[in-house]
């Protein structure tokens, strides 16, 4: 009995030791680039062979946080299929250190995260999508042939089905 427990302890210690280096690289400092619209816009209009999924979100936006796992899963399953998921955070500037970076670290977000800050909302909301009233979550899916904007929340199934219409 004791032997078994000891063995288990050894295994646990070994296991946690093994994980240590990996975790420490994962928890290395998160760096976030803040873009204005002039810098973001070219990323929303690439003409290469990839399909891009841009999700507009913020850590304070409850339905955004709720749907993030769907985007993470999409990124994981489709990254080898020429699909790139980009999470565009609309967190306030002062929240980058206090909320955004800890969130990315804690949730181990694997998709690319950008921070976007541009005061000229009157221009860029409409320029991203004429029919976007400005609510988040919102998602843009595009490739060289097709482009669609969604002012809504997604489940993984809905998101994957939408993405498929771009890949077929």
């Amino acid at each position: 009995m004791y032997k078994a427990q000891f063995f288990l302890l050894i295994v646990l210690v070994l296991f946690s030791c093994k994980k240590m280096p990996k975790e420490s690289t994962e928890s290395k400092e998160v760096t976030i680039t803040t873009l204005n619209y002039e810098q973001l816009k070219p990323l929303l209009h690439k003409k290469d062979d990839k399909t891009y999924v841009f999700n507009f979100w913020a850590t304070w936006c409850m339905p955004c946080v709720k749907e993030l796992p769907a985007f993470e899963k999409l990124n994981e399953k489709f990254k080898d299929k020429n699909v790139e998921v980009v999470l565009v955070s609309l967190d306030f500037l002062r929240q980058i250190e206090s909320d955004l970076k800890p969130f990315i670290k804690e949730k181990k977000i694997q998709s690319k995260v950008l921070h976007f800050e541009d005061s000229n909302e009157q221009f860029w909301i409409r320029d991203i999508a004429e029919n976007w009233s400005g609510s988040i979550p919102a998602t843009l899916i595009y490739n060289a042939q097709k482009r669609k904007f969604y002012e809504q929340s997604f489940s993984y199934e809905e998101l994957q089905n939408e993405l498929q219409t771009f890949l077929n």
Binding site: W60, C61, E121, S133, G134, S135, I136, Q152, S153
Partner: peptide
Amino acid sequence: DTRAIGCSIKDKRRR
């Protein structure tokens, strides 16, 4: 007709 970012109105019927 002007635009600003905002929080979506929460409604469970929409999901």
